[in-house]
Design a protein around this nucleic acid. Structure first.
Lengths: 338, 338
DNA sequence: CTGTTAGCGCTTTCAA
DNA sequence: TTGAAAGCGCTAACAG
């Protein structure tokens, strides 16, 4: 292993000069810099990150921690898209990514110790549950943090948060469904987290706007990224004496499964029954008839998260809350009724 | 920041004793060990990984590098599953994961320098292209490496490789299709990589077994994880004067898109035309009619990769090639013809 | 412009 | 059973 000392010896200067030359510090004349760099190259020098890190307290590493259930992990279609974009953004600035184990979130896990011991320069929290002690500690610490997709009202004014305009787009989606003539609609929503609450607000606002009174029957709580539970809820809702003509699902994942569920009940989507999803997954767009949904701009979300965390690391002030516009996709899964 | 020195001072012993106590070295009597650990705990001691790494040359970090096109990344449904399982396996043994940027694979990238400079204990290569110089260097190095899913015949006897039994399962799938009465079938396959070559061998072997002569028309090269190209190929193939009754697609991803493509041509899958996929993606199993495909045991693949790399890191000898059994899933997308 | 020096926090011989 | 001392490879005052 070639060290700075070896280069120093080979080029007849001191280790500090080599260090400075390699770091492109102006003090060293270009000629000397080039010479040293050339020698370093010839010797096959590879800088030792641990040594640099130990000295400078900067690891050039950003951690990612995710609250997505273990079963899903990267296999979560929406989050995979966000992460891809985030990773691309920070890698462009020469940061490495360290994945943080979900085990660190358990009661006896030590998330913050893990981050500090590794000198992580920042942490991205995906779909945060702000009630978890480990996360609260992390947020209180001096480590730059960005929370993306889900988080909580409580942290929104003190932590960098990035999310889609869930409320507005759910409003728009509902408004569209109402405009198609549906009056009896049911929203099978996800767990009671911020994202869900926002969407419910949009849902209710659109109803109100159209003069339709909201009743508790219009809202059924289910789960995100799940096949079984929303399916069960669909069946329950359709077994009612006065079943809805349109069902809104927690996400596209549940929606694609709904095509099957409904077919098994003898109902044709977009004809006998209308459905809508949320997320805008590529794979949901090939369903027939095409799914009506809200496309979340995962690429922009990830990119924004990358920019935000880099700014935060470099002590550049930015706003805490960043709302990324989503887009209503009008498929054919919601039909006109009279 | 609390260091070992602080603990030494607080507990009236030397730094080396603290280090030994914390490392649970038998020399130190249990009583002293416990006392020191307690004090460390009270002080909120967090071991500095960089210092440890610098000293021991072990980073407790495993790198992951993927050849999946940048566009896909973690959004590649099959690989995401494999990675999730791999990550789980190594995290259980206290290793961290560092993601290696695809930029390192470019001609002027320095993959090996990156790994060495970070003292990575091992590297997982996902879907390797063994023609890439950076990978060749990595394989020549002393860094433990495991290649998963795709790799090359050339490295199979010197590098730890993990893959599905592609050939056998393609044989089985083809055999099944033939048993359903299909004689004119076309395999729209992926790029010319090891995995594809194996599948083609299985495909041809099954044809031979049934006494059907292989003709070049039966094989059309396309791309993996792509919507456009296989779709184009489907249309070309069906425009032939004597179109096939069954089309095998490169993967489930292309297969789910095929439902749409075929419908647009006025063909009903599992009735007017038969199709089969490969991979066994969850999302492909909800298509109607259910897709006939080969399920790759991604969980076991990832787990095996984790075990293998850990053994390799710990200098435990294991076989170089590990073939993971896949499973034929008989859906309804292949119908019986007479 | 460059070298000397000290030290980041840890492990590990060696000696007691 | 423990401590002293050296050093991993690097950076950054400070001094010249």
């Amino acid at each position: 292993m070639v060290t700075i000392k070896d280069i120093a010896k080979a080029s007849g200067v001191s280790a500090s000069t080599v260090s400075r030359a390699l770091a492109d510090i102006d003090l060293i004349p270009v000629y000397t810099r080039d010479k040293i760099k050339k020698i370093a190259d010839e010797l096959g020098y590879i800088p030792n990150r641990a040594a640099k890190n130990l000295k400078t307290k900067k690891s050039w590493n950003i951690g990612i921690i995710s609250f997505v259930e273990e079963k899903l992990g990267f296999s979560h279609y929406l989050f995979a898209n966000i992460l891809d974009s985030f990773i691309k953004g920070v890698e462009a600035k020469n940061y490495d990514i360290t994945l943080l184990s979900r085990q660190l979130l358990s009661d006896d896990g030590n998330l913050i110790g893990h981050c500090k011991g590794r000198n992580l320069d920042g942490v991205l929290i995906l779909c945060a549950d702000t009630d978890v002690k480990q996360i609260q500690n992390l947020l209180k610490s001096d480590i730059p943090v960005v929370a993306i997709d889900n988080f909580d009202e409580k942290i929104v004014s003190t932590t960098h948060c990035i999310t889609s305009d869930n409320r507005a787009k759910m409003f728009e989606l509902t408004e569209y469904i109402l405009s198609m003539g549906h009056k009896n609609i049911t929203y099978i929503c996800g767990q009671d987290i911020f994202v869900t609450r926002e969407r419910i607000k949009g849902f209710k606002a659109a109803l109100k706007m159209s003069g339709i009174e909201f009743t508790s029957k219009m809202l059924v709580e289910s789960r995100y990224y799940n096949y079984e539970d929303p399916q069960k809820k669909i069946n329950q809702v359709l077994d009612r004496s006065n079943p809805p003509t349109c069902i809104l699902l927690p996400d596209d994942y549940a929606a694609i499964k709904a095509y099957e569920t409904l077919k098994l009940r003898g109902l044709e989507v977009g004809k006998d029954i209308s459905i809508a999803g949320f997320d805008g997954l590529e794979v949901a767009q090939i369903m027939m008839p095409k799914l009506t949904t809200v496309y979340q701009d995962t690429e922009r979300m990830g990119k924004c998260a990358a920019e935000t965390i880099l700014q935060s690391i470099n002590h550049i002030e930015t706003s805490f809350l960043e709302i990324i516009p989503a887009t209503l996709i009008k498929g054919q899964s919601v039909c006109k009724i009279f």
